[in-house]
Simulated assay, not measured.
Amino acid sequence: MKLSAGVEWAIHCCVVLSLAERPVPGARLAELHGVSKTYLAKHLQALARAGIVQPSEGRDGGYALTRDPAGITVLDVVRAIDGPEPAFRCTEIRQQGDLAAPPEECRQACGVAQVMAEAEQAWRTSLSGRTIAELAATVDGAAVRATI
């Protein structure tokens, strides 16, 4: 399973925002993580579209979480950045080439598709059981707040 780099950046940003006492500018989030401001802005917009963060403008503007970090799962962030589509997409390879099976023999998912679907479900179940609040508990909140 390969996730985009934006997923990692977005999760880290959500952890920082969960510890912040006020909105954090996108440029500051980029500096904190040593990532491109432009690229991070795209991911912050995706988080906003998903209802995970709320942007605010003005002198004290920036980004803030829209809800309690205990209510935001890692899977919520993954879906916001990489979308809800499954990682594995069956192309019915069993109906191609020299070993092609006729369509009437392919009414149910093959063993490969079944195994991949089970693995994806386990992965999604695991990520849906972990929250931003749990991840925030693993970092030094005082140190984070001192830098933002």
Rank of each mutant, 00 (worst) to 15 (best):
L127H: 07
A109S: 13
E21L: 10
G83W: 05
G83Q: 08
E8H: 12
P84E: 15
A142I: 01
E85G: 13
T147Q: 15
P102H: 06
V7D: 02
D98Y: 15
Q121I: 00
D140R: 11
L47T: 02
R28T: 14
R107P: 01
A20T: 09
T131L: 02
A10G: 12
L44P: 13
A10S: 15
A133S: 09
A122Y: 08
I52W: 02
Q108T: 07
A122L: 11
A20C: 08
G34W: 07
R59A: 14
A5H: 03
V112L: 12
E105R: 15
P84F: 02
P23N: 02
D76E: 06
G34I: 00
L17F: 10
T91A: 06
A119I: 12
G111Y: 04
V115M: 10
Q96Y: 05
E21Q: 13
S56P: 03
I72R: 01
V77E: 10
A87D: 15
L29H: 10
E104G: 01
A146N: 09
A48F: 00
A100L: 11
E31N: 06
T131V: 04
A27I: 01
A30V: 08
Q45W: 02
L135I: 00
I72A: 15
G111V: 09
T73D: 00
A10P: 13
G34A: 07
V35F: 10
V139Q: 04
G61R: 04
C106G: 03
C106P: 01
Q121Y: 02
L135H: 08
C14M: 14
G97S: 00
D82A: 08
Q114S: 11
D140L: 01
E92C: 10
Q108E: 13
S18Q: 02
I81S: 06
D82R: 00
L44A: 02
R22S: 14
A142E: 13
P69E: 09
D60S: 12
I81T: 01
G97C: 01
Q121E: 14
C13E: 11
E85Q: 12
V16L: 10
M1N: 04
Q108D: 14
A146T: 13
L99A: 15
L40Y: 12
P23H: 03
G51V: 03
T66I: 03
T138V: 04
R28D: 11
R130S: 01
H12T: 03
L19A: 09
H33L: 15
L32F: 07
P103H: 08
R79K: 09
A20R: 11
L99H: 13
I132T: 06
T66M: 10
L32Y: 03
E134S: 01
Q108W: 14
E120N: 10
L65D: 11
C13S: 14
S36L: 04
A64L: 06
I11A: 02
D76G: 06
R49I: 00
S18W: 10
T131F: 02
G26M: 11
R107D: 04
Q45I: 09
V74L: 13
Q96H: 09
A142G: 08
T73S: 15
G6K: 09
S128P: 00
R107T: 12
A64P: 07
V112I: 15
K37N: 09
A142W: 09
E92S: 14
P55Y: 00
E134W: 07
G61W: 15
A100K: 11
P25T: 01
T73G: 00
P103Q: 08
L127P: 07
C14E: 05
G51Y: 08
A87E: 08
W9F: 13
A50H: 07
T38C: 03
L32S: 06
V53G: 12
